[in-house]
Design a binder for these strands. Structure first.
Lengths: 126, 126
DNA sequence: ATACTGATTAGAGTAAACTCTAAGTCAAGG
DNA sequence: CCTTGACTTAGAGTTTACTCTAATCAGTAT
């Protein structure tokens, strides 16, 4: 059972952010006898998942939705499934876009390099 | 030479956004005799490029930097090149992350589907 | 005893990227 | 002549996701 500071350190996010996620009902850690937050392993795993989703641009509002479906219980399994499927589709689209732009950048970079080396040659010839 | 409304329509962004980009010095369209903005083909191509960069999460501030290097002229070619190279590296990292999370989601989705079909079988057996 | 460390809260502040409002000009059509 | 619609501006407002502040408390170290 870790404190908020330990978890922040472990996951590379701030304690502010962890409290913010709690306010947004994305996570509800336990409390010890002093009222301090205590995170167990399943809290940690959930937070790691949340961070992964964030890295793929899932907005906090969607993550919140998913979390609240989880809390509602087993009868929301289908809803959660379709949320994940939808996000997966978004991500696959995003991967395509990134690869396209990556190619475009590659071409632009080659053109720049070419231009620079030609200019260098010209300068030497002067 | 298109008006702001035509360009907005064509590129699927709002006239507000186009004026915002101008305020941020990302683009400087021509003006007609009434002082109205006029965008030529090279303005359009530049905007299309900007939109592509945005789709890959390049912040407006970087796009601004790139644009202002362009305006400064030929001696900034190297700086522009390294800006593009840097963004390409970021994008390649991002593609990796997306593919990883995509795999993770796929596994989660399979697990959900499995759970749902087992539950259905159980329900039928009751 | 007192200072330091790390926790608590409500709520204010920030940065990015729009997005909208108010008040106005101007040309074309009925 | 009047309305409609597109344009103009400066500047205010919005949303998202934090990020920070201030005031307080509990436990440990000197």
């Amino acid at each position: 059972m870790r404190t908020i500071g330990e978890v922040a350190q472990l996951l590379g996010i701030s304690t502010h952010t962890l409290r913010y996620y709690e306010k947004e009902k994305i996570i509800t850690p336990d409390r010890d006898e002093n009222g301090d937050r205590r995170y167990n392993d399943s809290h940690i795993r959930w937070l790691q998942f949340v961070i992964k989703l964030k890295e793929t641009q899932m907005p906090i509002s969607k993550i919140k939705q998913y979390a609240s479906l989880f809390l509602e219980g087993e009868h929301t399994t289908l809803a959660r499934l379709s949320l994940l499927v939808e996000h997966k589709r978004y991500m696959e689209q995003q991967i395509k876009t990134l690869i396209d732009v990556d190619d475009m950048l590659e071409r632009k970079i080659v053109a720049y390099k070419d231009f620079i080396s030609k200019r260098a040659a010209k300068t030497l010839a002067d």
